[in-house]
Amino acid sequence: MNRVVNVARMQLINKWTYLGIPAIILASAFLITYAIWALVPSGGGAMYSGAAQSVMWYFLALGIMSMTQTFPFSQAMSVSRRTFYIGTLGLFAVVALAISVLYYVLGLIEKATGGWGVNGQLYALGWLADQPALVQIYFYFIAMVALFMIGFWFATIYKRWQATGMLVVWIAVAVVLLGLVALATWQGLWPEVGAWFVAQTPLSVSGWATVFCAALACGSYLTLRRATP
């Protein structure tokens, strides 16, 4: 157990990776967006921005990095694969939860200040902002975990089977997606598909994402168990 905590502590030795860089991305995304809003005159309507997502994409990169760089190092530190896995995912979950709460709080501030005084929408996105606090936080959290897991899982595949593995996975993903599209087209299911997407709520999307994350978490653990540094 102690070693699991140490795996997390090890990744915090360099404060920049998990704390500094996300903070900078968060701050600069806000400032740049705000500057654009200030410069570009709006027609009086609400202004949207997807800039808040940028931190989430950074976690995709983090997922890849922790597998390609931190895993080989953890092996040199005589850490078992299981311990590395639990420690890394645990640390990530804590950081993701903290950022989710921060997003929620920023969303509250955004609403209270009338969109930062310029009627902007950066955090309190219309579709989500009316939901209960827990749903909002859960949504952010699971979105970040999903991105991290995608990065982590792809990197495990790469670690274990190199370029061949990546190629096979990409082809498999493409085949499945194309198959679904073909199926929908052939069966004339597009109206139903569209209706299904429209019917989704933040909570149901989060639910699907949780299933997806759980599948990736199992998949990457099983792949990691036989990966070599």
């Binding site: 990744q11 760089q69 080989p72 540094p229």
Partner: peptide
């Protein structure tokens, strides 16, 4: 493992 240390000749370290 905690009683063993093996640093590879081509050991990788976190980039930063």
């Amino acid at each position: 493992l905690g009683r063993i240390c093996f640093i590879r000749e081509s050991q990788k370290y976190p980039d930063d």
